[in-house]
């Protein structure tokens, strides 16, 4: 259950951005989460209000975008969709693949709320 630590890290980043932008609140936070990042979306959603309480994100909505898993085969060069525990090439079946997407955990965008007075 490290989602709470991640939400706290998220809130730290958002708080810094709000300070730079001179706003007292933010309304929306967009995060993209890959299945191989080790983060569970539902747990993140549950942890978020706990981490956000009393911060600039107190009333903010967390939008989680789940990315797909894609690999590129080092043998045949093809790109294909893959599953969490099966990253072999869908084209030639070789296991020597490189992950192109699926392990990201990125704060994409923050929508500001009210300007600080």
């Amino acid at each position: 259950m490290h989602e709470l630590s991640l939400c706290e890290a998220l809130i730290d980043q958002v708080t810094n951005i709000a300070r730079e932008q001179q706003v007292s609140s933010v309304s929306d936070i967009f995060v993209s989460v890959g299945p191989l990042s080790g983060v569970e979306g539902p747990l993140m959603r549950h942890a978020f209000p706990i981490a956000a309480a009393g911060t600039v994100a107190d009333q903010a909505e967390l939008h989680l975008e789940t990315t797909g898993i894609r690999v590129r085969c080092e043998e045949c060069g093809e790109e294909s969709d893959a599953k969490m525990n099966n990253l072999v090439c869908a084209s030639c079946g070789d296991w020597r693949t490189t992950l192109i997407s699926g392990d990201e955990l990125i704060l994409q965008r923050v929508v500001m709320g009210e300007a600080r007075v």
């Binding site: 991640l6 890290a9 998220l10 730290d12 980043q13 951005i17 932008q21 706003v23 929306d28 995060v31 939008h63 990201e104 955990l105 990125i106 704060l107 994409q108 965008r109 923050v110 929508v111 500001m112």
Partner: peptide, 19 residues
Amino acid sequence: VTPAADEHAVEVLKGLLDA
């Protein structure tokens, strides 16, 4: 969610585990 015309948003593109 379509951004409103007067929406004030910041593109961040930073890893959550940055710190």
